[in-house]
């Protein structure tokens, strides 16, 4: 049987499948559906310094094989997260990958400084690519300079034993260029992809449906885009771990990401369809790797770049 354990930037996780930020809250709600300690870990909803109400409703539109959302980073703020959510995960032995988001470079640095004192943080995902923040100019992930300055600040304020993963947006001209600059700024790995910006219009009112006007498209509709992005980043940085995501619904989907260069995967939007999906996808993936003769997940990482199965 394929060894389920994976190592991401020096940190070992129990399995190759994770939840995805924004699709699992802080884990608690999914605990009734499967054992959270069996998967790689819970990637939390992005945490900010202060409580945040998010955007007005409607926040969601179903689209062909996917959905648009404009949640707007609703959350309780880091103080409440550390008082309630992180201890809940830690007490149950669930690996916590904490996603952070900020409106300024300094907010990211502040969040990193606060998390530095938290031994239960296994890794940090830096959400530099959420397209939902109110100020349209602040999508850090779409600009080489702002992306790398956020990563630089988070890296220098984080313990060297805690890896930081830059969450990349597909809404850029060259994902490889952004990845290279984030890596130079200190990113230990990448989480990719975030949603891609979309929009839907109500044909009765002829107005945008979402309260936030535009929203992030996710689900199986974006899977080929995600696989392509993972492929391109692994091509230029083959030794940098990637947590791959974008419409993963089955083990076969996950295997595409592994073969394209992801070391592990996150199951996001499909958790809304099936709250047990992260564990199911992991089991299916491990079964497929076993059938193909891989003793570990890492043996299969990027295999599509090396001529596939020989």
């Amino acid at each position: 049987m394929t060894d389920p354990r994976v190592t991401l930037a020096g940190v070992e996780f129990a399995g190759p499948a994770f939840t995805a930020s924004g699709c699992a809250a802080a884990g608690k709600e999914l605990a009734g559906f499967f054992d959270l300690t069996e998967i790689g870990g819970v990637v939390t909803k992005s945490i900010m310094m202060r409580p945040r109400s998010g955007r007005p409703t409607p926040r969601m539109v179903e689209t062909p094989s996917g959905m648009l959302n404009s949640i707007g980073l609703q959350g309780p703020g880091i103080e409440s997260f550390l008082a309630n959510d992180l201890p809940w995960l830690a007490e149950r032995g669930v690996a916590a990958v904490v996603s952070i988001a900020g409106e300024t470079v300094e907010e990211y640095a502040q969040l990193a400084r606060i998390l530095r004192n938290e031994p239960d943080v296994k890794a940090i995902e830096v959400n530099i690519s959420c397209p939902n923040v109110e100020s349209r100019g602040q999508v850090f992930a779409c600009d080489v300079m702002s992306a790398s300055s956020v990563i630089h600040q988070v890296r220098r304020n984080t313990s060297s034993t805690v890896p930081i993963f830059a969450k990349l947006s597909p809404d850029v001209t060259s994902i490889a260029e952004i990845a290279l600059s984030c890596h130079n700024a200190g990113a230990d790995g990448f989480s990719m992809i975030n949603t891609t910006l979309g929009m839907a219009i109500d044909t009765d009112t002829l107005r945008p449906i979402l309260g936030g006007v535009t929203g992030g498209l996710s689900g199986p509709a974006i899977r080929p885009i995600a696989v392509r992005n993972v492929w391109q980043v692994h091509h230029v940085l083959p030794d940098v771990p990637i947590l791959g995501m974008g419409g993963i619904a089955t083990g076969e989907d996950a295997l595409q990401f592994i073969a394209a260069g992801a070391t592990a995967v996150s199951v996001g939007t499909m958790t809304f369809h099936d709250p047990s999906a992260p564990l199911r996808v992991q089991q299916e993936l491990l079964g497929l790797l076993d059938e193909r003769g891989f003793a570990s997940v890492s043996e299969a990482v990027g295999v599509a770049h090396r001529g596939g199965l020989v």
């Binding site: 924004g22 699709c23 699992a24 809250a25 709600e29 999914l30 559906f33 909803k45 998010g54 409703t57 409607p58 926040r59 969601m60 959302n69 949640i71 609703q74 958790t271 809304f272 709250p275």
Partner: peptide, 8 residues
């Protein structure tokens, strides 16, 4: 089930 935050 409480994870998507759309029904607020």
């Amino acid at each position: 089930v409480g994870v998507c935050m759309t029904c607020v």
